[in-house]
Amino acid sequence: MNLDHYVTLGRSGLRVSPLCLGAMTFGEDHGFGSSVKESEAILDRFIERGGNFIDTANAYTRGHSEKIIGDHLGRHPSKRDRAVIATKFTANLYLGDPNGGGAGRKAIFAQCEQSLRRLQTDYIDLYWMHVWDKHTPIEETVRALDDLVAAGKVRYVGVSDTPAWKVAQAHSLAGFRGWAQFIALQIEHSLLERTVEGELIPMARELGLGVTPWSPLKSGVLTGKYTRENAGKHKADRGPFVLSALTDKAYAVVDKLVEIAGALDTTPARVALAWVVARPGVTSTIIGARTLAQLDDNLASLEVELAPDQVAALDAVSAPTLDFPAGFLRMAGAFTNGGTTINGESAPAWPMAPKNDGERY
């Protein structure tokens, strides 16, 4: 697969690259990240290779990420119109202002105008609700988003980091009312975060939402940089995010990644990304890069083809514990399928079933 093998995002006609460039580290405002010059070079390299999907948020580096993209792409119509620029609302950038963030109508409209100014564009291609705002009725949020679409300030809307039941409620409500529906779902998904396979990903596939995973390398934990042998010897830029993830299970996954990478003459990071890219329901995987070298290494993941036994090995070592009823329903396949194969899925016979067809009461 190449970066210019575009795919449609969810149940829409929006064409995006199979990898999305995450711009959370554009700017050094948090004490780490890419300089303006390096960020611009990363943008150029990604676009030169065929990438067109760029993801940011009003909160990323306190708005500086959006400004970098606006200065480099937004102000140039020929560059801007070829890019699919996604940004997010909900984060409050104004201390003490109760309407500075959230998903209420006043907050959404204000955040959208601020993002448009920073991005130096007349429209946002994909506008994400960054996280669920439990203090705002979902009807108010989806209606406000529909108004932005009708006004031409937003082309499509999506949802990120929100419970499956709330996404389904909002999506169904918008459909009934004839409002703009979500076309995509952004969630954390990696070999170390697979609980989303219980509710969120099945929901997205059922509703026709394209899945765009974030942190597919778990903040760098799955790059192969952190191993049992050098535990405690590396200083992580994202400190707590990395250290809290360095568990025995994480090291077991990294060991398997290193083993498979050696067999394929590639890197653990590329193997980890290739696993996410190939997951059912995934449309475009969000990659982050602070340097051109990191970007090039991540882009090379599209050249990695994992054999079925390698996928099975990674699945086994990273198997999640799913909340009820997801785990139970996996087991219950035998209860409904009765030892048959349906839609390519086979299940053993239910132990309590009769040995043969017998009499049907």
Rank of each mutant, 00 (worst) to 15 (best):
M352A: 15
W214F: 15
D323N: 14
P320N: 09
L191Y: 02
I54N: 13
A332S: 11
V276M: 11
A353V: 08
P202W: 08
L273R: 06
I68E: 07
T291N: 03
G22N: 06
G101H: 06
V277E: 05
E359F: 12
H5E: 15
L148G: 02
P202N: 13
S34E: 12
V311N: 07
A91L: 00
T90G: 00
G102I: 04
H72L: 07
K355F: 01
I42T: 01
T8V: 15
Y251P: 04
L173Q: 03
G158I: 06
R194E: 06
K79H: 10
L299K: 07
T285S: 14
D297Q: 14
Y156L: 03
K88N: 11
I187G: 06
E305N: 09
I187C: 03
G232W: 06
M24G: 05
A41W: 05
T341K: 11
A293I: 12
R82L: 06
L95K: 13
I54K: 11
N58E: 14
L243D: 14
G13C: 01
L116C: 04
R11G: 02
D146L: 06
P213D: 08
L43W: 08
I108H: 03
L209I: 05
R117S: 08
Q310P: 05
E197R: 01
A180V: 11
R177F: 02
L43P: 04
A144S: 15
K225Y: 03
D147H: 10
A319R: 10
I85N: 06
A204L: 06
R228H: 02
A151C: 00
A353W: 12
H130W: 09
D146V: 03
A263I: 00
F46K: 03
A110S: 13
V282S: 13
E303Y: 00
G74K: 06
A313F: 10
A59M: 14
W165R: 03
L19S: 08
L322I: 08
L148M: 12
K79C: 11
